[in-house]
Computed example of a mutant assay.
Amino acid sequence: MNSNKTIKWVEAGKIFSRDPKGDFQCPECELHKLQSEDRYSEANPRELQRTIFCPGCGARYTLRLRRYDK
């Protein structure tokens, strides 16, 4: 992964860490908007894993977040 794409993934991570419906173009293919999917941990209800992915090329990036609503 080149540094320009890495920077874009970090930017996308910042956006999606605040809003699961973030609006960001895929850093890999630059053709599709990224989407996200959340998975909650049964072992730790304060933890959330958010996967950001491109529906076109399949690129993925995963965030582990702390839930403050519990």
Rank of each mutant, 00 (worst) to 15 (best):
G22D: 04
R39N: 06
L65K: 06
R67A: 13
S3E: 15
Q25K: 15
R64F: 13
C26S: 12
G13T: 01
N2W: 14
K8L: 14
E42F: 11
A59C: 02
R50G: 02
D69F: 11
R46F: 12
D69Q: 05
E11L: 11
K8E: 15
L31S: 09
F24T: 02
R60N: 15
N4V: 11
Q35E: 09
E30G: 04
G56C: 07
Y40W: 08
Q49S: 15
H32L: 09
M1Y: 01
C29N: 07
I15Y: 14
T6A: 08
Y61I: 02
T51L: 15
V10P: 00
S36T: 14
V10M: 14
R67T: 03
G58W: 06
K5T: 05
K21I: 01
I15K: 15
S41T: 04
T51S: 10
A43R: 07
T51W: 09
K5V: 04
P20L: 05
L48C: 11
E28Y: 08
R46S: 12
L48G: 00
K8G: 08
N4M: 12
G22S: 02
W9G: 11
P20I: 10
V10G: 01
S3T: 11
K70V: 13
C57R: 04
Q25T: 13
K33E: 07
E37L: 08
E42L: 12
D69T: 09
I7L: 13
K21F: 06
D19S: 03
T62E: 01
Y40D: 05
E30Y: 00
N2Q: 11
T51C: 15
L31H: 06
A12M: 04
P20E: 13
K70F: 12
G13I: 01
L48E: 05
K8I: 07
S41M: 10
R67I: 08
F24K: 03
K14M: 15
K14Q: 15
Q49A: 10
T62W: 00
C54P: 12
L63N: 03
E37H: 07
T51N: 14
R46Q: 06
C29W: 09
M1S: 10
R64V: 09
E28T: 08
N44I: 07
K33N: 10
Q35T: 02
N44Y: 15
R39K: 06
P27E: 14
G58V: 07
C26N: 05
R50D: 08
G13Q: 01
I7N: 11
E11N: 10
L34V: 05
F16L: 10
Q49I: 00
E47M: 14
E37D: 05
D69Y: 09
H32E: 13
D19M: 10
E28A: 04
A12F: 08
L34G: 11
D19P: 09
K5P: 00
A43G: 15
R67Q: 10
G22Y: 00
Y68V: 02
L48F: 00
S17I: 13
T51H: 12
K14W: 08
